[in-house]
Design a protein around this nucleic acid. Structure first.
Lengths: 124, 124
DNA sequence: CTGAATCCCTGCCGATACTG
DNA sequence: CAGTATCGGCAGGGATTCAG
């Protein structure tokens, strides 16, 4: 009853996972969760910076000069909400905040690598 | 000069790839290319349907009833432009069009799997 | 130094109606 | 069957200004 034109038996993996059988884009879908974490301009670049190590607000501004304060604040809040990073206030003056990836956030490394690899493939 | 707080030497992979050193979100970045292909509501669900086999316009409407004709048309054009799928007109009446993933499009399987896996992880 | 508040503009997406 | 045309609401994101 499938529309497969080739005779392969169904391969294991996501498209055959029954939990992937949503008829609409629900936010609880794991794919949606990940895409929501990465959604929006600049987001992956902020993650890339943090994959290289902890950063302060100013560090990130220096690394991404065309990124406005507002959007950087938005992105950091979005990534904190998604459990990707945590904020740490450092004592003393001037006030400093250090942004650090959580273990979950570090696991985005392989995800970004998969996105990179697909996009780097030449297509006929 | 790194801000690493741990003593690990830099791991191989994307964040240390010099080609990943963009200071702004340029469309030629492989990560941007992939995210652009998957961008927008319903896109991943259309890809999922096609990972299960060829589909006609009506097949896709039946599988995703809440998806409007206009957005479905938009998504199919977007995915064709990205080299993910191809359109094939079938001869005869009524007119039928079959949508098929390209090899490049089938390679999105592992990418979606990576997105799924990260989103399925519980976070503390 | 690290943001918050505001304004405005643009593009996405849904709904509806129509066509070869 | 497989689309196209048009319209409108709403959220994303950039610029600017202000605050703790």
């Amino acid at each position: 009853m499938t529309h497969q034109t080739v005779g392969h038996r169904p391969r294991p993996g996501l498209p055959d996972d029954p939990r992937a059988d949503t008829a609409a884009p629900v936010p609880s879908c794991p794919v949606e969760i990940t895409l929501a974490a990465l959604r929006g301009r600049w987001t992956t670049l902020v993650v890339r910076e943090l994959l290289r190590g902890d950063r302060s607000f100013t560090d990130l501004r220096r690394a991404l000069p065309a990124l406005s304060d507002k959007v950087l604040t938005d992105r950091l809040a979005q990534l904190a909400e998604a459990g990707v990073l945590t904020r740490h206030r450092l004592p003393g003056r001037p006030p400093r905040v250090r942004y650090t990836l959580t273990p979950h956030g570090r696991d985005l490394g392989p995800v970004l690598q998969a996105l990179w690899d697909w996009g780097a493939q030449r297509r006929g």
